[in-house]
Write a protein that binds this DNA or RNA. Structure first.
Lengths: 96, 96
DNA sequence: ACTATAGTTAGCCAAATGGCTAATTATCCT
DNA sequence: AGGATAATTAGCCATTTGGCTAACTATAGT
């Protein structure tokens, strides 16, 4: 779980997540969006995979990454919960 | 703004925030909750201050830290927005 | 003025992080 | 089998990070 925070702490990885929010993309397609090499991107993918935020499936020679939306939602909502923040709705019943 | 992500990426700092969610606490009082030295805690305070997440005011020899709730809320809600997550409410109108 | 107490700053160190190039793996095509 | 393409793994490097001890600052009390 703490892997998620680590994964989210890097701007490149946050952008990867945002890109995958729109649709699945191959490793190379994702790499095209950043001024870093493919091996570096591969490392970012690994970090995101370790946090279970993304998954890759092979199709021929390309690997298609897709976002694990539920894990992302759980992580972010968990974050809100930890800090007892209520995004838009009514004020909280006051914490413990 | 990116300072906020950095600040949130460390477990000690997340706990500091949680403690300050309950009530204001002195530097020493906060330090008592962790198995690290006071100078180390001081560094964490600095990181949190740089992200404008906490503020300290001096009272005699002690420094009382308090959470900047609005900044924390903004940061987390911003995070939700970036990823187009809707915490509890109705499903989104679908993104761009 | 001296001492005690609460914190921070300075300076160091080992481990982690994010980047690169070179080498390797995997798949497809002829 | 051999070559081309997509991606990862291996290994290296500089910077950042989180920790420590020692030294300093600031305030209070006597």
């Amino acid at each position: 779980m703490s892997d998620v925070y680590r994964a989210l702490s890097d701007p490149t990885r946050r952008t990867i997540i945002r890109l995958l929010r729109q649709r699945d993309r191959s490793a190379g397609e994702l790499a095209d969006h950043f001024p870093v090499t493919k091996p570096t991107m591969s490392k970012h993918f690994t970090v995101l995979k370790e946090a279970d935020l993304i998954r890759g499936r092979r199709t021929g020679t390309t690997i298609i990454y897709s976002l694990n939306v539920s894990v992302l939602e759980d992580a972010l909502c968990g974050l809100l919960d930890v800090f007892r923040i209520t995004p838009k709705s009514k004020p909280t019943k006051e914490e413990s």
